[in-house]
């Protein structure tokens, strides 16, 4: 399993971040690390705080307390624009694409290339989109110019992920990328996730499906009731242990912090 050398700081590091909504403490003193070139799975039961954590990283609502370090420097993320500016791209489960637009239009949405007349310049956009998809080995698309409504779930997810690569994001956060997909399409998207990490991006994968997590993740971070229950290397645990962590927040062999130091 790949591991960032200790000399370079991790791509994203959260230190003791907290977030509450009124009386509800959604996150409490959470530490979280997502190194570059690594797939970090974020798992936890419903209501454990996964979505809140992601939304805070994405700038949809800010953390109440705690530090965010991006590439070793402390940063403030107050809006989705701040996150995008840092190179954080979130691929949402259902809300990533406009069905009536084609793949190229979706990948360049909000960042269209224009020519000297300030009209859309389709040629470079189509070339760049096609190149990115080919680099990611997404070869099943028949046409870049069909509305994405006509694509399969896996293809749509691929286009959404490719957008992160096209924009040279440093950190891609994938929210349940395989939730609605069949077996073959899931494999296709997981392979894509692996390639993203291999191309040097930091990837945070949120998933309910432990098969997916064990298939691609290098590390697993488990949230339980708003606290970080464990942060382990995938190789050191089996799925039974992770299920236990998710449901009870405990771990029968050793306490979580001990596992972390050991890896």
């Amino acid at each position: 399993m790949s591991q960032t050398p200790q000399t370079t700081p991790p791509l994203l590091e959260l230190r003791k971040v907290s977030k509450s909504f009124g009386a509800v403490q959604a996150l409490k003193d959470v530490d979280f690390v997502a190194p570059a070139g690594t797939v970090t799975a974020l798992v936890g039961d419903n209501g454990a705080g996964k979505s809140t954590l992601i939304k805070c990283i994405g700038g949809i609502h800010p953390f109440d307390h705690g530090q965010i370090l991006f590439e070793g420097k402390e940063v403030a993320i107050h809006s989705p624009k701040d996150a995008a500016h840092l190179g954080i791209e979130i691929v949402y489960q259902d809300l990533a694409l406009c069905d009536n637009l084609d793949s190229v239009q979706n990948m360049f949405l909000g960042r269209e290339i224009r020519n000297w007349l300030r009209l859309l310049d389709e040629t470079p956009m189509e070339i760049a989109a096609g190149q990115t998809l080919r680099d990611l080995n997404v070869t099943t698309l028949k046409s870049l110019r069909m509305p994405v409504a006509s694509l399969s779930g896996g293809q749509r997810q691929s286009v959404a992920v490719a957008k992160a690569v096209l924009w040279k994001s440093k950190l891609a956060i994938l929210d349940e990328p395989t939730a609605a997909l069949g077996v073959a399409q899931t494999a296709q998207v997981l392979a894509l996730v692996r390639r993203l990490a291999e191309s040097g991006l930091g990837v945070i994968l949120i998933s309910h499906n432990l098969n997916d997590v064990f298939a691609v993740a290098d590390r697993i971070s488990v949230l339980h009731l708003g606290r970080m229950a464990a942060d382990v290397a995938t190789a050191d645990v089996d799925s039974q242990e992770v299920v236990e962590l998710i449901t009870t927040g405990r771990y029968r062999r050793q306490p979580a912090h001990a596992v972390r130091e050991e890896t």
Binding site: P80, K81, A84, I90, Y92, L95, A96, L97, C98, D99, N100, L101, Q105, L109, G110, R111, E112, R114, R118, L119, L120
Partner: peptide, 24 residues
């Protein structure tokens, strides 16, 4: 069909939430 504005009109009509998250 050929301006950024026009593209964004189609995007909002297709999926306003996706358009918003794309920074439109």
């Amino acid at each position: 069909g050929r301006t950024k504005f026009g593209r964004h009109v189609y995007a909002v009509g297709g999926n306003a939430e996706a358009a918003r998250r794309a920074g439109i």
